[in-house]
């Protein structure tokens, strides 16, 4: 177990050590102490290490993650797991805005609530939120799954291209071109598998499915006056 105390070291040194690890490293288990809200903790990882951050972090924690597992034992600021490619990023508390923004793959789990713009422009990532999500979530989402055990704020899925949004609680309002869709057995299976993988218990039967109406894909002459 590698232990890095950010009260004694700094984020740049930590991240450089993580980036310098060879692919066949034996240093696969890490604990980061005293993050105290620092930004960009454990960003840009590209091999299968497991990192436990003990405390609250600032912006962009575990951004651009590839293969690694990063667990934040606390709350986190903006853009946790942004642009994640693969691997797992887990937050045991609440996350601020733009959790999992533009993620291409892998999984982001927020055990508490996520703020506005959760999954904005997601491109294939799976995001599971144990609590609720804020306004403008999944804005312009392109692919992937967003599973929300609590409620969703206003304008869910605004200008959605694709991606499947599953919400157990109330949706304050749907954004432009986002509609409720049928919850098929295949959808239920997907949600059950994602909840199981995320380690979050919820009743799959209570989830509703939202997705793109696909009406914004092309210019529509009837809307010409609106441009």
């Amino acid at each position: 177990m590698q232990i890095v105390d950010l009260a004694q070291s700094n984020v740049r040194t930590l991240n450089q050590r993580l980036h310098d690890l060879p692919r066949d490293t034996n240093e696969r288990a890490w604990r980061i102490l005293n993050p105290r809200g620092a930004h960009a903790v454990a960003v840009g990882l590209n091999l299968a290490v497991e990192i436990h951050v003990e405390g609250h972090v600032g912006y962009y924690c575990a951004g651009m993650n590839k293969e690694a597992t990063v667990v934040i034992h606390g709350q986190c600021g903006w853009g946790v797991g942004e642009n994640i490619m693969s691997g797992l990023v887990r937050v045991t508390g609440n996350a601020s805005q733009a959790a999992g923004a533009s993620g291409h793959g892998g999984m982001v789990v927020i055990e508490g609530d996520a703020g506005p713009r959760c999954g904005i422009s997601m491109k294939g990532v799976d995001i599971v939120v144990g609590g609720s999500i804020g306004n403008f979530s999944a804005f312009m989402a392109q692919a992937g799954n967003l599973v929300v055990c609590g409620d969703a704020g206003d304008a869910l899925g605004d200008s959605l291209y694709e991606a499947d949004l599953y919400v157990q609680g109330k949706v304050a309002s749907l954004g432009a071109d986002c509609v409720e869709k049928k919850m098929t057995p295949k959808d239920a299976k997907t949600v059950a598998a994602l909840l199981a993988k995320a380690g979050i218990k919820a009743d799959v039967a209570r989830f509703r499915h939202y997705g793109s109406a696909r009406k914004l894909y092309h210019f529509h002459v009837d809307h010409a006056d609106a441009y």
Partner: peptide
């Protein structure tokens, strides 16, 4: 504005921490 400014408050590790809604 950011959590960094709260990090030294007494008992913050057990505080309820959240983002105020718009």
């Amino acid at each position: 504005s950011e959590y960094r400014s709260l990090a030294d408050l007494p008992g913050v590790e057990n505080a309820r921490v959240w983002e105020p809604a718009p």
